[in-house]
Design a protein around this nucleic acid. Structure first.
Lengths: 157, 157
DNA sequence: GATGAAATCCGAGTCAC
DNA sequence: GTGACTCGGATTTCATC
């Protein structure tokens, strides 16, 4: 999946921006906002979904409401830098539901993880029981989040 | 706002989980999935929005589709650790649309930023023109993301 | 090849119970 | 909490450019 996307015109962009902000808008309302007929808006939106420009629509849940008040970022360094080593680690991480994001990075770490748990005690359990025993992990560095300053969930376009 | 949320029963949780996965479901469909009548489902869902359990619903856009293929994580260290210093930095960061997330952390950095731009050239421009001149910044450390292994957008509950 | 108007069908939202 | 009712939106069809 590259920039192998067909060009989007001004109306498509407007639809994307609007649905990114309010994903549950009715088609009728959306059509008004972007100044096209409901039929056209419906067809356009359908296409944006079908062709993968919109990958999903999700409700954002207040973390504290479901007992996940703690956010932790973790830097991970692996033992070896072989494709097999990376592959094993990634597979194992995908199975950990507490890990929201996992990115392979260039820099002082091999991976950066974003993790949500109930509290610090919960994180310590996760860390000692799961994280440090993930395949190939040499070292981890933990960054407890003390304040979530910004979490936009929106792409800047 | 803490865990000062009223208790959610099994049906509320089901609604949250379902809408987190498919935010654009019709109320009728949602009602079937959680096995209640449409009227009940409607009232429940309304309440989950009104009381802040659901903070929003957003369409997820494929980054490459809107020319934002590069993801970069940046660790930031400030000059001084005073409340004023933190405050100024945070205000300035909130105004940068390229910064998707910003978290105050405990550890080797003061802040961790998540940034989306078109490409590395774009990041270098942003870095030299904006990031290093944010108020109070002593040092930054850049982690280019080479592979997005996981980006769930969903809370593990 | 895309559009908008109209036509049909189904869900949203509200009621009484 | 459910069932029913009314209104408006979703979705398709079709003529048009």
């Amino acid at each position: 999946m590259e920039d192998s996307f067909k060009a989007l015109d001004r109306i498509d962009i407007k639809i994307l921006r609007t649905l990114q902000a309010e994903g549950r808008l009715t088609n009728a309302e959306l059509a008004q906002r972007v100044s096209v007929s409901a039929a056209t808006c419906h067809r356009r939106t359908q296409r944006l979904f079908d062709e993968g420009f919109i990958t999903g629509v999700r409700a954002e849940i207040a973390p504290a409401a479901v007992g996940l008040s703690a956010l932790v970022m973790v830097g991970v360094v692996l033992d070896r830098s072989t494709p097999e080593s990376f592959g094993e680690f990634e597979s194992a991480v995908l199975a950990l539901k507490e890990v929201l994001d996992c990115n392979l990075v260039a820099g002082d770490f091999d991976y950066l993880l974003k993790i949500r748990v109930r509290d610090m005690a919960d994180f310590n359990k996760l860390h000692s029981a799961k994280l440090i025993s993930l395949p190939g992990v040499r070292q981890t560095r933990t960054f407890f989040v003390m304040k979530e300053v910004k979490e936009s969930g929106r792409l800047p376009f």
